[in-house]
Structure formats: structure tokens, C-alpha cells
Design a protein around this nucleic acid. Structure first.
Length: 108
DNA sequence: CAGGTGACTCTTT
DNA sequence: GAAAGAGCCACCT
């Protein structure tokens, strides 16, 4: 799962459910979230690019801790992702399409 | 084996 | 569209 997360390109974001699905876990949003929660800094993951899915076209920063959320926001903006005042991201503009990185490396 | 949990999300109002 | 509620899945007690 970490390998999949590392494939999300700069300036793009993916949802927890999306990561889980690519890892073979349908409706495993919470699982992906848990995986990130226990990850260590040494894992060098672009964790800031994984967001919750607020609707069909909107992603939302899912960090509850205000400081952590602000941090994620800063990291995203630094790489060109626009985050709204409501802590949401337009997935139509910044959402990652797995085909971008060649999903062929994933074997069911 | 039963029950609880959560950086989630899908469906129904 | 937004707001609730009910699911869901891997893990841990």
C-alpha cells in the first residue's frame, strides 16, 4: 500500500478509498487511513496527497488535529494544489488518475 | 469467538 | 447539495 501511495505524483491527490481499492481492498477507506496513521517518518510517504472523499468531485483534508491539518495544507499548496477555505480540494483538477502512473504494476 | 475502533464512505433524507 | 445514519474492513482486546 505504501508503494501505491508513493506513486501519487506531485501536485495530485488521491482518496483513501482509491488507495485501498488499488491495493485490492474494496471499501477499505478506513484501512488505508489506518495504514497512514501508523506510518513512520522514515517511510518517506507523500501522506499529504491522500485526502478524504467529501463528494463525487470534492476531496477533503481528513486530519482532525488542527495543527496537522494546517501542515498538510501547507505541504499541498507548496506543490501547487489549491485547498479551499473549507479544507476541500477539487478532485477534477487535482485528483490522481491511476493510469497516469501505469496501473500495470498492480497484480490482483 | 465477541466486541470495539477509526487520517473512511456510500446511501438516504 | 448538505446532513445524518448506516455500512465496511482490518486489527486489537
Amino acid at each position: 500500500m505504501y508503494e501505491i501511495i508513493r506513486k501519487v505524483p506531485r501536485g495530485r491527490v488521491a482518496t483513501y478509498a482509491q488507495i485501498a481499492a488499488l491495493a485490492g481492498v474494496t471499501r477499505g477507506g478506513r484501512v488505508a487511513a489506518a495504514a497512514l496513521k501508523v506510518s513512520q517518518k522514515s517511510d518517506r510517504l507523500p501522506w499529504q496527497r491522500i485526502v478524504g472523499r467529501a463528494s463525487e468531485v470534492r476531496g477533503r483534508i481528513a486530519i482532525y488535529d488542527p495543527a496537522g491539518a494546517a501542515h498538510q495544507r501547507q505541504l499541498l499548496e507548496r506543490e501547487g494544489v489549491e485547498v479551499t477555505d473549507a479544507w476541500t480540494i477539487d478532485l477534477r483538477r487535482y485528483g490522481w488518475l491511476p493510469t497516469d502512473a501505469g496501473s500495470d504494476r498492480f497484480k490482483p
